[in-house]
Write a protein that binds this DNA or RNA. Structure first.
Lengths: 299, 299
DNA sequence: CATAATCCATCATAGATTATGATGGATTAT
DNA sequence: ATAATCCATCATAATCTATGATGGATTATG
Protein backbone atom coordinates (compact mmCIF):
# COMPACT_ATOMS: atom_id res chain seq x y z
CA UNK A 1 0.00 0.00 0.00
CA UNK A 2 1.31 3.31 -0.97
CA UNK A 3 0.58 5.19 2.23
CA UNK A 4 3.02 3.35 4.43
CA UNK A 5 1.89 4.66 7.81
CA UNK A 6 -0.97 2.48 9.05
CA UNK A 7 -3.29 2.46 12.02
CA UNK A 8 -2.30 -1.13 12.59
CA UNK A 9 1.33 -0.13 13.12
CA UNK A 10 0.25 2.49 15.64
CA UNK A 11 -1.88 -0.04 17.51
CA UNK A 12 1.15 -2.27 17.69
CA UNK A 13 3.29 0.57 19.03
CA UNK A 14 0.69 1.25 21.71
CA UNK A 15 0.48 -2.43 22.64
CA UNK A 16 4.26 -2.66 22.99
CA UNK A 17 4.32 0.44 25.17
CA UNK A 18 1.51 -0.87 27.38
CA UNK A 19 2.78 -4.42 27.77
CA UNK A 20 6.49 -3.62 28.00
CA UNK A 21 7.86 -5.96 25.34
CA UNK A 22 7.41 -7.19 21.77
CA UNK A 23 6.62 -10.70 22.96
CA UNK A 24 3.98 -9.55 25.43
CA UNK A 25 2.45 -7.34 22.76
CA UNK A 26 2.35 -10.34 20.42
CA UNK A 27 0.52 -12.38 23.03
CA UNK A 28 -1.97 -9.58 23.62
CA UNK A 29 -2.60 -9.04 19.89
CA UNK A 30 -2.68 -12.73 19.01
CA UNK A 31 0.26 -12.51 16.63
CA UNK A 32 3.78 -13.94 16.52
CA UNK A 33 6.66 -11.98 18.05
CA UNK A 34 8.45 -11.54 14.74
CA UNK A 35 5.38 -9.88 13.21
CA UNK A 36 5.56 -7.30 15.98
CA UNK A 37 9.27 -6.78 15.51
CA UNK A 38 8.89 -6.31 11.77
CA UNK A 39 5.95 -3.97 12.12
CA UNK A 40 7.84 -1.76 14.56
CA UNK A 41 10.80 -1.66 12.18
CA UNK A 42 8.50 -0.80 9.30
CA UNK A 43 7.01 2.07 11.33
CA UNK A 44 10.48 3.32 12.25
CA UNK A 45 11.47 3.26 8.57
CA UNK A 46 8.31 5.12 7.57
CA UNK A 47 8.83 7.85 10.15
CA UNK A 48 12.60 8.01 9.80
CA UNK A 49 12.98 7.71 13.59
CA UNK A 50 14.24 5.24 16.14
CA UNK A 51 11.25 4.76 18.41
CA UNK A 52 13.03 2.29 20.68
CA UNK A 53 16.33 2.23 22.50
CA UNK A 54 17.74 -1.24 21.78
CA UNK A 55 20.85 -1.08 23.96
CA UNK A 56 19.41 -3.56 26.46
CA UNK A 57 17.83 -6.95 26.08
CA UNK A 58 14.35 -5.53 25.80
CA UNK A 59 13.86 -2.42 23.63
CA UNK A 60 12.55 0.56 25.60
CA UNK A 61 10.77 3.57 24.20
CA UNK A 62 13.07 6.39 23.25
CA UNK A 63 12.16 10.01 23.85
CA UNK A 64 11.08 10.23 20.23
CA UNK A 65 9.05 7.08 20.72
CA UNK A 66 7.24 8.57 23.70
CA UNK A 67 6.35 11.71 21.74
CA UNK A 68 5.06 9.66 18.80
CA UNK A 69 3.20 7.31 21.16
CA UNK A 70 1.07 10.20 22.42
CA UNK A 71 0.06 11.12 18.88
CA UNK A 72 -0.55 7.47 18.07
CA UNK A 73 -2.99 7.12 20.97
CA UNK A 74 -4.89 10.16 19.77
CA UNK A 75 -5.09 8.84 16.23
CA UNK A 76 -6.19 5.38 17.21
CA UNK A 77 -8.84 6.86 19.46
CA UNK A 78 -10.12 8.96 16.56
CA UNK A 79 -10.24 5.84 14.40
CA UNK A 80 -12.26 4.08 17.08
CA UNK A 81 -14.70 7.00 17.11
CA UNK A 82 -15.01 6.81 13.34
CA UNK A 83 -15.82 3.11 13.58
CA UNK A 84 -18.31 3.75 16.35
CA UNK A 85 -20.02 6.36 14.21
CA UNK A 86 -20.12 3.99 11.30
CA UNK A 87 -21.65 1.35 13.49
CA UNK A 88 -24.28 3.73 14.81
CA UNK A 89 -25.16 4.86 11.32
CA UNK A 90 -25.29 1.27 10.14
CA UNK A 91 -27.60 0.36 13.00
CA UNK A 92 -29.65 3.57 12.89
CA UNK A 93 -28.55 4.28 16.45
CA UNK A 94 -27.85 7.88 17.36
CA UNK A 95 -24.16 8.60 18.03
CA UNK A 96 -25.38 10.16 21.28
CA UNK A 97 -28.78 10.30 22.94
CA UNK A 98 -29.54 13.92 23.69
CA UNK A 99 -32.56 14.61 25.86
CA UNK A 100 -34.05 17.64 27.62
CA UNK A 101 -36.59 16.88 30.37
CA UNK A 102 -38.85 19.10 32.43
CA UNK A 103 -38.11 18.25 36.09
CA UNK A 104 -41.80 17.77 36.84
CA UNK A 105 -41.38 14.44 35.07
CA UNK A 106 -40.92 11.71 37.68
CA UNK A 107 -37.22 11.35 38.27
CA UNK A 108 -37.38 7.72 39.36
CA UNK A 109 -39.11 6.71 36.13
CA UNK A 110 -36.50 8.56 34.06
CA UNK A 111 -33.56 7.12 36.00
CA UNK A 112 -34.85 3.55 35.71
CA UNK A 113 -35.45 3.97 32.01
CA UNK A 114 -32.03 5.48 31.34
CA UNK A 115 -30.45 2.69 33.36
CA UNK A 116 -32.21 0.14 31.18
CA UNK A 117 -31.10 2.08 28.10
CA UNK A 118 -27.52 1.79 29.31
CA UNK A 119 -27.98 -1.98 29.48
CA UNK A 120 -29.48 -2.14 26.02
CA UNK A 121 -26.97 0.23 24.36
CA UNK A 122 -23.82 -0.01 26.52
CA UNK A 123 -21.60 2.16 24.31
CA UNK A 124 -24.11 4.95 23.75
CA UNK A 125 -23.27 8.25 25.43
CA UNK A 126 -26.18 10.25 26.87
CA UNK A 127 -26.54 14.02 27.28
CA UNK A 128 -29.37 15.04 29.63
CA UNK A 129 -30.69 18.52 30.34
CA UNK A 130 -33.10 18.97 33.22
CA UNK A 131 -34.81 22.32 32.90
CA UNK A 132 -38.27 23.63 33.51
CA UNK A 133 -40.77 25.53 31.48
CA UNK A 134 -39.47 26.65 28.07
CA UNK A 135 -36.05 25.09 28.55
CA UNK A 136 -36.64 21.74 26.81
CA UNK A 137 -38.19 23.26 23.68
CA UNK A 138 -35.34 25.75 23.50
CA UNK A 139 -32.86 22.86 23.55
CA UNK A 140 -34.72 21.18 20.70
CA UNK A 141 -34.65 24.35 18.66
CA UNK A 142 -30.98 24.95 19.46
CA UNK A 143 -30.25 21.50 18.16
CA UNK A 144 -28.41 20.36 21.28
CA UNK A 145 -31.21 17.97 22.23
CA UNK A 146 -32.87 15.62 19.82
CA UNK A 147 -35.69 14.61 22.17
CA UNK A 148 -37.51 16.57 24.84
CA UNK A 149 -40.10 15.85 27.51
CA UNK A 150 -42.18 18.81 28.63
CA UNK A 151 -45.58 20.47 28.62
CA UNK A 152 -46.38 22.04 25.30
CA UNK A 153 -46.90 25.73 25.81
CA UNK A 154 -47.01 27.03 22.30
CA UNK A 155 -49.65 25.35 20.16
CA UNK A 156 -49.50 25.26 16.39
CA UNK A 157 -45.73 24.71 16.18
CA UNK A 158 -45.79 22.71 12.94
CA UNK A 159 -42.09 21.90 12.98
CA UNK A 160 -42.32 19.86 16.18
CA UNK A 161 -43.75 16.37 16.48
CA UNK A 162 -45.35 15.84 19.87
CA UNK A 163 -46.95 12.76 21.39
CA UNK A 164 -48.66 12.70 24.74
CA UNK A 165 -46.47 10.81 27.19
CA UNK A 166 -48.16 11.13 30.57
CA UNK A 167 -50.19 13.36 32.87
CA UNK A 168 -48.53 14.68 36.00
CA UNK A 169 -50.83 15.18 38.95
CA UNK A 170 -50.24 18.47 40.72
CA UNK A 171 -51.57 19.08 44.20
CA UNK A 172 -51.73 22.24 46.27
CA UNK A 173 -49.54 21.83 49.34
CA UNK A 174 -48.27 23.91 52.20
CA UNK A 175 -45.77 23.44 55.02
CA UNK A 176 -47.21 21.91 58.19
CA UNK A 177 -46.07 25.02 60.06
CA UNK A 178 -48.01 27.36 57.76
CA UNK A 179 -51.25 28.88 59.09
CA UNK A 180 -53.20 27.40 56.16
CA UNK A 181 -52.28 23.94 57.42
CA UNK A 182 -54.06 24.65 60.74
CA UNK A 183 -57.35 25.55 59.07
CA UNK A 184 -60.19 23.08 58.73
CA UNK A 185 -60.57 21.51 55.29
CA UNK A 186 -61.89 22.14 52.76
CA UNK A 187 -60.89 25.77 52.44
CA UNK A 188 -62.27 28.31 50.01
CA UNK A 189 -60.42 30.04 47.17
CA UNK A 190 -60.99 33.35 48.93
CA UNK A 191 -58.98 32.16 51.89
CA UNK A 192 -56.30 30.77 49.59
CA UNK A 193 -56.09 33.99 47.62
CA UNK A 194 -54.96 35.81 50.74
CA UNK A 195 -51.95 33.53 51.11
CA UNK A 196 -48.67 33.82 49.25
CA UNK A 197 -48.40 31.49 46.27
CA UNK A 198 -44.94 30.27 45.32
CA UNK A 199 -44.56 29.92 41.56
CA UNK A 200 -41.85 29.24 39.01
CA UNK A 201 -40.64 31.90 36.69
CA UNK A 202 -39.44 31.07 33.20
CA UNK A 203 -35.67 30.90 32.81
CA UNK A 204 -35.58 31.16 29.03
CA UNK A 205 -36.78 33.78 26.54
CA UNK A 206 -39.01 31.28 24.72
CA UNK A 207 -42.08 31.96 26.73
CA UNK A 208 -42.61 34.73 29.25
CA UNK A 209 -45.97 33.45 30.37
CA UNK A 210 -46.32 31.97 33.81
CA UNK A 211 -47.59 28.46 34.17
CA UNK A 212 -49.71 26.79 36.75
CA UNK A 213 -52.94 28.09 38.12
CA UNK A 214 -52.58 31.48 39.68
CA UNK A 215 -55.06 32.07 42.44
CA UNK A 216 -53.83 34.98 44.51
CA UNK A 217 -52.17 38.27 43.79
CA UNK A 218 -49.42 37.59 46.26
CA UNK A 219 -46.84 35.70 44.27
CA UNK A 220 -43.27 34.77 45.03
CA UNK A 221 -41.39 33.67 41.96
CA UNK A 222 -38.49 31.20 41.84
CA UNK A 223 -36.18 30.20 39.04
CA UNK A 224 -36.04 26.51 39.84
CA UNK A 225 -38.15 23.80 41.36
CA UNK A 226 -35.74 22.79 44.11
CA UNK A 227 -35.35 26.30 45.46
CA UNK A 228 -39.10 26.74 45.40
CA UNK A 229 -39.46 23.46 47.32
CA UNK A 230 -36.96 24.71 49.86
CA UNK A 231 -39.03 27.84 50.45
CA UNK A 232 -42.25 25.83 50.54
CA UNK A 233 -40.84 23.58 53.26
CA UNK A 234 -39.71 26.66 55.13
CA UNK A 235 -43.30 27.87 55.23
CA UNK A 236 -43.12 30.89 52.97
CA UNK A 237 -46.31 30.06 51.14
CA UNK A 238 -48.27 27.43 49.25
CA UNK A 239 -48.04 26.09 45.72
CA UNK A 240 -49.14 23.46 43.27
CA UNK A 241 -46.47 20.79 43.18
CA UNK A 242 -46.11 17.61 41.15
CA UNK A 243 -47.23 14.77 43.34
CA UNK A 244 -44.05 12.75 42.89
CA UNK A 245 -41.89 15.54 44.24
CA UNK A 246 -43.83 15.94 47.46
CA UNK A 247 -45.07 12.43 48.21
CA UNK A 248 -42.44 11.72 50.79
CA UNK A 249 -42.97 15.11 52.44
CA UNK A 250 -46.75 14.45 52.59
CA UNK A 251 -46.10 11.03 54.10
CA UNK A 252 -43.82 12.55 56.72
CA UNK A 253 -46.35 15.34 57.22
CA UNK A 254 -43.78 18.08 56.66
CA UNK A 255 -46.18 19.21 53.91
CA UNK A 256 -49.95 19.18 54.07
CA UNK A 257 -52.14 18.71 51.05
CA UNK A 258 -54.69 21.50 50.81
CA UNK A 259 -58.25 20.58 49.91
CA UNK A 260 -60.34 23.28 48.31
CA UNK A 261 -64.10 23.47 48.20
CA UNK A 262 -64.36 23.73 44.42
CA UNK A 263 -61.10 22.53 42.97
CA UNK A 264 -58.14 20.50 44.08
CA UNK A 265 -55.47 18.77 42.10
CA UNK A 266 -55.13 18.99 38.32
CA UNK A 267 -53.29 17.03 35.69
CA UNK A 268 -50.54 18.61 33.62
CA UNK A 269 -49.93 16.70 30.39
CA UNK A 270 -46.33 16.03 29.37
CA UNK A 271 -45.32 15.32 25.79
CA UNK A 272 -42.37 13.61 24.14
CA UNK A 273 -41.28 15.98 21.39
CA UNK A 274 -38.79 16.06 18.54
CA UNK A 275 -38.12 18.24 15.54
CA UNK A 276 -39.75 16.75 12.47
CA UNK A 277 -36.43 16.92 10.61
CA UNK A 278 -34.53 15.03 13.36
CA UNK A 279 -36.58 12.01 14.35
CA UNK A 280 -35.19 9.76 17.07
CA UNK A 281 -33.00 6.83 16.09
CA UNK A 282 -33.38 3.34 17.43
CA UNK A 283 -32.06 4.33 20.83
CA UNK A 284 -34.47 7.23 21.17
CA UNK A 285 -37.40 5.11 20.05
CA UNK A 286 -36.38 2.43 22.51
CA UNK A 287 -36.33 4.94 25.35
CA UNK A 288 -39.77 6.31 24.46
CA UNK A 289 -41.24 2.79 24.47
CA UNK A 290 -39.54 2.03 27.76
CA UNK A 291 -40.78 5.25 29.37
CA UNK A 292 -44.35 4.45 28.28
CA UNK A 293 -44.16 0.95 29.75
CA UNK A 294 -42.79 2.20 33.06
CA UNK A 295 -45.39 4.97 33.26
CA UNK A 296 -48.16 2.44 32.59
CA UNK A 297 -46.89 0.20 35.43
CA UNK A 298 -46.46 3.13 37.76
CA UNK A 299 -49.97 4.56 37.17
CA UNK B 1 -3.41 -6.91 7.74
CA UNK B 2 -5.60 -7.56 10.69
CA UNK B 3 -6.78 -4.02 11.30
CA UNK B 4 -8.72 -3.57 8.11
CA UNK B 5 -9.35 0.18 8.38
CA UNK B 6 -6.38 2.05 6.94
CA UNK B 7 -5.33 5.65 6.60
CA UNK B 8 -4.80 4.99 2.92
CA UNK B 9 -8.46 4.08 2.45
CA UNK B 10 -9.47 7.29 4.17
CA UNK B 11 -7.15 9.35 1.95
CA UNK B 12 -8.78 7.73 -1.04
CA UNK B 13 -12.23 8.58 0.28
CA UNK B 14 -11.16 12.19 0.74
CA UNK B 15 -9.66 12.33 -2.75
CA UNK B 16 -12.86 10.98 -4.30
CA UNK B 17 -14.94 13.51 -2.38
CA UNK B 18 -12.69 16.37 -3.42
CA UNK B 19 -12.32 15.43 -7.09
CA UNK B 20 -15.87 14.22 -7.63
CA UNK B 21 -15.16 10.82 -9.19
CA UNK B 22 -13.15 7.63 -8.82
CA UNK B 23 -11.31 8.29 -12.06
CA UNK B 24 -10.34 11.82 -11.10
CA UNK B 25 -9.19 10.58 -7.71
CA UNK B 26 -7.11 7.94 -9.44
CA UNK B 27 -5.44 10.58 -11.59
CA UNK B 28 -4.76 12.74 -8.56
CA UNK B 29 -3.32 9.86 -6.56
CA UNK B 30 -1.36 8.34 -9.41
CA UNK B 31 -3.21 5.03 -9.33
CA UNK B 32 -5.51 3.14 -11.66
CA UNK B 33 -9.25 3.65 -11.42
CA UNK B 34 -9.97 0.06 -10.44
CA UNK B 35 -7.63 0.39 -7.43
CA UNK B 36 -9.76 3.29 -6.24
CA UNK B 37 -12.97 1.38 -6.82
CA UNK B 38 -11.72 -1.66 -4.90
CA UNK B 39 -10.36 0.41 -2.06
CA UNK B 40 -13.67 2.21 -1.60
CA UNK B 41 -15.49 -1.13 -1.62
CA UNK B 42 -13.03 -2.50 0.91
CA UNK B 43 -13.65 0.51 3.16
CA UNK B 44 -17.41 0.09 2.83
CA UNK B 45 -17.09 -3.58 3.78
CA UNK B 46 -14.91 -2.73 6.78
CA UNK B 47 -17.33 -0.09 8.06
CA UNK B 48 -20.48 -2.00 7.13
CA UNK B 49 -21.85 1.11 5.37
CA UNK B 50 -22.62 2.30 1.88
CA UNK B 51 -20.59 5.47 1.62
CA UNK B 52 -21.73 6.22 -1.95
CA UNK B 53 -25.05 6.38 -3.73
CA UNK B 54 -24.51 4.45 -6.96
CA UNK B 55 -27.87 5.07 -8.59
CA UNK B 56 -26.34 7.36 -11.23
CA UNK B 57 -23.39 7.01 -13.56
CA UNK B 58 -20.99 8.55 -11.07
CA UNK B 59 -21.28 7.50 -7.40
CA UNK B 60 -22.08 10.40 -5.08
CA UNK B 61 -21.46 10.52 -1.35
CA UNK B 62 -24.35 9.28 0.70
CA UNK B 63 -25.35 10.94 3.94
CA UNK B 64 -23.42 8.27 5.80
CA UNK B 65 -20.47 8.93 3.53
CA UNK B 66 -20.54 12.63 4.32
CA UNK B 67 -20.52 11.95 8.07
CA UNK B 68 -17.65 9.49 7.76
CA UNK B 69 -15.76 11.88 5.45
CA UNK B 70 -15.66 14.50 8.19
CA UNK B 71 -14.11 12.01 10.61
CA UNK B 72 -11.74 10.81 7.91
CA UNK B 73 -10.44 14.34 7.33
CA UNK B 74 -9.78 14.75 11.04
CA UNK B 75 -7.94 11.45 11.23
CA UNK B 76 -5.80 12.08 8.19
CA UNK B 77 -4.92 15.52 9.50
CA UNK B 78 -3.84 13.96 12.81
CA UNK B 79 -1.70 11.49 10.89
CA UNK B 80 -0.09 14.37 9.00
CA UNK B 81 0.69 16.06 12.32
CA UNK B 82 2.23 12.85 13.61
CA UNK B 83 4.44 12.66 10.53
CA UNK B 84 5.38 16.31 10.88
CA UNK B 85 6.36 15.72 14.49
CA UNK B 86 8.41 12.72 13.48
CA UNK B 87 10.14 14.80 10.84
CA UNK B 88 10.92 17.58 13.29
CA UNK B 89 12.29 15.12 15.82
CA UNK B 90 14.31 13.43 13.10
CA UNK B 91 15.75 16.77 12.01
CA UNK B 92 16.30 18.10 15.54
CA UNK B 93 13.89 20.91 14.77
CA UNK B 94 11.55 21.88 17.58
CA UNK B 95 7.92 20.98 16.88
CA UNK B 96 7.18 24.61 17.77
CA UNK B 97 9.42 27.55 18.53
CA UNK B 98 8.35 28.95 21.87
CA UNK B 99 9.89 32.25 22.88
CA UNK B 100 9.33 34.81 25.65
CA UNK B 101 10.80 38.27 25.06
CA UNK B 102 11.08 41.33 27.26
CA UNK B 103 9.48 44.17 25.28
CA UNK B 104 12.51 46.39 25.81
CA UNK B 105 14.13 44.25 23.13
CA UNK B 106 13.93 46.11 19.81
CA UNK B 107 10.73 45.01 18.13
CA UNK B 108 11.94 45.65 14.60
CA UNK B 109 14.94 43.37 15.09
CA UNK B 110 12.75 40.61 16.48
CA UNK B 111 10.17 40.94 13.71
CA UNK B 112 12.78 40.85 10.96
CA UNK B 113 14.43 37.82 12.51
CA UNK B 114 11.18 35.94 12.95
CA UNK B 115 10.24 36.76 9.38
CA UNK B 116 13.52 35.27 8.21
CA UNK B 117 12.89 32.23 10.42
CA UNK B 118 9.55 31.79 8.69
CA UNK B 119 11.40 31.72 5.37
CA UNK B 120 13.94 29.21 6.66
CA UNK B 121 11.44 26.92 8.44
CA UNK B 122 8.14 27.50 6.64
CA UNK B 123 6.15 24.83 8.47
CA UNK B 124 7.35 25.70 11.96
CA UNK B 125 4.72 27.23 14.25
CA UNK B 126 5.89 29.98 16.62
CA UNK B 127 4.53 30.91 20.05
CA UNK B 128 5.69 34.32 21.25
CA UNK B 129 5.14 35.89 24.68
CA UNK B 130 5.98 39.56 25.09
CA UNK B 131 6.17 40.38 28.77
CA UNK B 132 8.35 42.54 30.91
CA UNK B 133 10.42 41.97 34.01
CA UNK B 134 10.11 38.47 35.49
CA UNK B 135 7.68 37.28 32.83
CA UNK B 136 10.15 35.63 30.44
CA UNK B 137 11.96 33.66 33.15
CA UNK B 138 8.63 32.53 34.53
CA UNK B 139 7.67 31.21 31.11
CA UNK B 140 10.93 29.28 30.92
CA UNK B 141 10.34 27.76 34.32
CA UNK B 142 6.72 26.95 33.48
CA UNK B 143 7.95 25.10 30.44
CA UNK B 144 5.72 26.99 28.02
CA UNK B 145 8.70 28.81 26.47
CA UNK B 146 11.90 27.08 25.52
CA UNK B 147 13.85 30.31 24.86
CA UNK B 148 13.66 33.67 26.51
CA UNK B 149 15.19 37.11 25.98
CA UNK B 150 15.36 39.33 29.06
CA UNK B 151 17.56 40.94 31.67
CA UNK B 152 18.76 38.48 34.24
CA UNK B 153 17.56 39.61 37.62
CA UNK B 154 18.40 36.64 39.77
CA UNK B 155 22.06 35.67 39.61
CA UNK B 156 23.31 32.23 40.49
CA UNK B 157 20.41 30.38 38.83
CA UNK B 158 22.41 27.29 37.89
CA UNK B 159 19.60 25.61 36.00
CA UNK B 160 19.47 28.34 33.35
CA UNK B 161 21.96 28.82 30.56
CA UNK B 162 22.32 32.51 29.69
CA UNK B 163 24.35 34.21 27.00
CA UNK B 164 24.64 37.95 26.59
CA UNK B 165 22.68 39.02 23.53
CA UNK B 166 22.76 42.81 23.48
CA UNK B 167 22.76 46.00 25.56
CA UNK B 168 19.70 48.22 25.42
CA UNK B 169 20.34 51.94 25.87
CA UNK B 170 17.85 53.60 28.22
CA UNK B 171 17.41 57.36 28.31
CA UNK B 172 15.47 59.58 30.70
CA UNK B 173 12.66 61.30 28.82
CA UNK B 174 9.69 63.51 29.51
CA UNK B 175 6.77 64.90 27.53
CA UNK B 176 7.44 68.24 25.80
CA UNK B 177 4.51 69.66 27.73
CA UNK B 178 6.00 68.70 31.10
CA UNK B 179 7.59 71.46 33.22
CA UNK B 180 10.89 69.54 33.31
CA UNK B 181 11.10 69.92 29.55
CA UNK B 182 11.08 73.74 29.89
CA UNK B 183 14.03 73.78 32.28
CA UNK B 184 17.57 74.54 31.11
CA UNK B 185 19.81 71.47 30.71
CA UNK B 186 21.57 69.86 32.39
CA UNK B 187 19.32 69.46 35.42
CA UNK B 188 20.30 68.14 38.83
CA UNK B 189 19.10 64.98 40.52
CA UNK B 190 17.56 67.12 43.22
CA UNK B 191 15.29 68.72 40.68
CA UNK B 192 14.48 65.38 39.12
CA UNK B 193 13.72 63.84 42.49
CA UNK B 194 10.87 66.29 42.96
CA UNK B 195 9.17 65.10 39.78
CA UNK B 196 7.01 62.01 39.41
CA UNK B 197 8.82 59.00 37.98
CA UNK B 198 6.82 56.53 35.96
CA UNK B 199 8.05 52.98 36.51
CA UNK B 200 6.99 49.44 35.66
CA UNK B 201 5.73 47.13 38.30
CA UNK B 202 6.39 43.41 38.15
CA UNK B 203 3.48 41.38 36.87
CA UNK B 204 4.75 38.00 38.08
CA UNK B 205 5.59 36.61 41.51
CA UNK B 206 9.13 35.73 40.45
CA UNK B 207 10.67 38.95 41.56
CA UNK B 208 9.05 41.70 43.58
CA UNK B 209 11.98 44.06 43.26
CA UNK B 210 11.60 47.10 41.10
CA UNK B 211 13.99 47.64 38.24
CA UNK B 212 15.46 50.67 36.67
CA UNK B 213 17.10 53.49 38.56
CA UNK B 214 14.78 55.02 41.10
CA UNK B 215 15.57 58.64 41.79
CA UNK B 216 12.56 60.17 43.48
CA UNK B 217 10.06 59.12 46.07
CA UNK B 218 7.17 60.03 43.86
CA UNK B 219 6.54 56.96 41.79
CA UNK B 220 3.67 55.97 39.56
CA UNK B 221 3.69 52.28 38.73
CA UNK B 222 2.34 50.66 35.56
CA UNK B 223 1.83 47.03 34.65
CA UNK B 224 2.93 47.31 31.03
CA UNK B 225 5.26 49.36 28.88
CA UNK B 226 2.64 50.63 26.47
CA UNK B 227 0.39 52.03 29.17
CA UNK B 228 3.36 53.68 30.83
CA UNK B 229 4.32 55.22 27.47
CA UNK B 230 0.77 56.51 27.08
CA UNK B 231 0.99 58.26 30.47
CA UNK B 232 4.47 59.57 29.69
CA UNK B 233 3.22 61.14 26.47
CA UNK B 234 0.33 62.62 28.41
CA UNK B 235 2.79 64.44 30.67
CA UNK B 236 2.23 62.60 33.92
CA UNK B 237 5.94 62.33 34.74
CA UNK B 238 9.33 61.21 33.48
CA UNK B 239 10.99 57.84 33.12
CA UNK B 240 13.93 55.88 31.75
CA UNK B 241 12.83 54.36 28.46
CA UNK B 242 14.58 52.08 25.97
CA UNK B 243 15.88 54.26 23.18
CA UNK B 244 14.24 52.26 20.41
CA UNK B 245 10.80 52.78 21.87
CA UNK B 246 11.05 56.54 22.03
CA UNK B 247 13.25 57.44 19.07
CA UNK B 248 10.38 58.53 16.87
CA UNK B 249 8.83 60.54 19.71
CA UNK B 250 12.18 62.28 20.33
CA UNK B 251 12.50 63.05 16.61
CA UNK B 252 9.00 64.53 16.53
CA UNK B 253 9.76 66.37 19.80
CA UNK B 254 6.72 64.96 21.56
CA UNK B 255 9.26 63.68 24.10
CA UNK B 256 12.36 65.49 25.32
CA UNK B 257 15.51 63.71 26.41
CA UNK B 258 16.54 64.89 29.86
CA UNK B 259 20.23 65.55 30.46
CA UNK B 260 21.45 65.30 34.02
CA UNK B 261 24.54 66.89 35.49
CA UNK B 262 26.06 63.64 36.78
CA UNK B 263 24.36 60.80 34.98
CA UNK B 264 22.39 60.25 31.83
CA UNK B 265 21.59 57.15 29.85
CA UNK B 266 22.60 53.65 30.87
CA UNK B 267 22.83 50.28 29.19
CA UNK B 268 20.65 47.36 30.26
CA UNK B 269 22.09 44.04 29.16
CA UNK B 270 19.69 41.48 27.67
CA UNK B 271 20.41 37.74 27.64
CA UNK B 272 19.18 34.81 25.58
CA UNK B 273 18.30 32.13 28.11
CA UNK B 274 17.19 28.54 28.14
CA UNK B 275 16.80 25.80 30.71
CA UNK B 276 19.87 23.56 30.67
CA UNK B 277 17.63 20.51 30.27
CA UNK B 278 15.81 21.95 27.23
CA UNK B 279 18.41 23.37 24.86
CA UNK B 280 17.16 24.99 21.67
CA UNK B 281 16.79 22.82 18.58
CA UNK B 282 18.04 23.76 15.14
CA UNK B 283 15.35 26.39 14.72
CA UNK B 284 16.12 28.06 18.03
CA UNK B 285 19.83 28.05 17.34
CA UNK B 286 19.17 29.53 13.93
CA UNK B 287 17.13 32.34 15.45
CA UNK B 288 19.81 33.17 18.01
CA UNK B 289 22.45 33.42 15.29
CA UNK B 290 20.17 35.56 13.16
CA UNK B 291 19.36 37.88 16.07
CA UNK B 292 23.08 38.36 16.77
CA UNK B 293 23.78 39.20 13.13
CA UNK B 294 20.97 41.74 12.95
CA UNK B 295 21.97 43.34 16.26
CA UNK B 296 25.56 43.64 15.01
CA UNK B 297 24.37 45.38 11.84
CA UNK B 298 22.00 47.62 13.74
CA UNK B 299 24.53 48.75 16.35
C1' DC C 1 28.88 -22.35 36.82
C1' DA C 2 25.74 -24.93 33.82
C1' DT C 3 21.26 -24.92 32.28
C1' DA C 4 16.70 -23.12 31.35
C1' DA C 5 13.67 -19.47 30.17
C1' DT C 6 12.73 -15.48 27.74
C1' DC C 7 13.28 -11.96 24.38
C1' DC C 8 14.66 -10.03 19.86
C1' DA C 9 16.36 -9.96 15.00
C1' DT C 10 16.82 -12.39 10.87
C1' DC C 11 15.19 -15.18 7.27
C1' DA C 12 12.46 -18.34 4.24
C1' DT C 13 7.97 -19.14 3.05
C1' DA C 14 2.92 -18.80 2.74
C1' DG C 15 -1.11 -16.10 2.80
C1' DA C 16 -3.40 -11.74 2.30
C1' DT C 17 -3.75 -7.37 0.35
C1' DT C 18 -3.07 -4.01 -3.14
C1' DA C 19 -2.15 -2.50 -7.76
C1' DT C 20 -2.29 -3.01 -12.77
C1' DG C 21 -4.45 -3.76 -17.06
C1' DA C 22 -8.11 -5.71 -19.87
C1' DT C 23 -12.86 -5.79 -20.57
C1' DG C 24 -17.76 -4.81 -20.94
C1' DG C 25 -21.83 -2.17 -19.55
C1' DA C 26 -23.95 2.26 -18.78
C1' DT C 27 -24.34 7.10 -19.27
C1' DT C 28 -23.46 11.41 -21.37
C1' DA C 29 -21.56 14.47 -24.91
C1' DT C 30 -20.87 15.45 -29.70
C1' DA D 1 -24.85 6.84 -34.34
C1' DT D 2 -20.57 7.36 -32.47
C1' DA D 3 -17.13 8.80 -29.14
C1' DA D 4 -15.75 9.79 -24.58
C1' DT D 5 -15.90 8.86 -19.89
C1' DC D 6 -16.84 6.41 -15.77
C1' DC D 7 -17.46 2.23 -12.94
C1' DA D 8 -17.44 -2.74 -11.66
C1' DT D 9 -15.50 -7.07 -12.47
C1' DC D 10 -11.82 -10.11 -13.11
C1' DA D 11 -7.22 -12.29 -13.91
C1' DT D 12 -2.70 -11.56 -12.76
C1' DA D 13 1.43 -9.51 -10.70
C1' DA D 14 3.56 -7.02 -7.06
C1' DT D 15 3.81 -5.91 -2.42
C1' DC D 16 2.86 -6.44 2.26
C1' DT D 17 1.96 -9.12 6.35
C1' DA D 18 2.07 -13.17 9.09
C1' DT D 19 4.02 -17.57 10.49
C1' DG D 20 7.52 -20.54 12.04
C1' DA D 21 12.34 -21.80 12.44
C1' DT D 22 16.62 -20.35 14.05
C1' DG D 23 20.44 -18.34 16.55
C1' DG D 24 22.32 -14.85 19.67
C1' DA D 25 21.97 -12.38 23.96
C1' DT D 26 20.44 -11.67 28.55
C1' DT D 27 18.56 -13.02 32.85
C1' DA D 28 16.83 -16.36 36.22
C1' DT D 29 17.38 -20.67 38.54
C1' DG D 30 19.33 -24.78 40.61
Amino acid sequence: MIDRLTLDQLRILIAVAETGSFSAAARRLGRVQSAISQSVQSLEATLGLDLFDRAGKIPTLSEAGQAILNDARSLVHSADLLRARAESIANDIEPELTLAVDPVFPTHILMESLSALDQAFPQLPVLLFTEGLGGPEQRLRDGVARLAVYSLLVTGATDLQAERLTDIPFVPVVAATHPLAQMPMPISRTVLAEATQLVLTDSTPLTQTLRGNLIGRRLWRFADLQTRLDYLLAGFGWCNMPMHLVETHLDSRRLIRLRLIDDTSFLAPLYIVHDRTRPPGRAGKWLIDDLRKRLAQDG
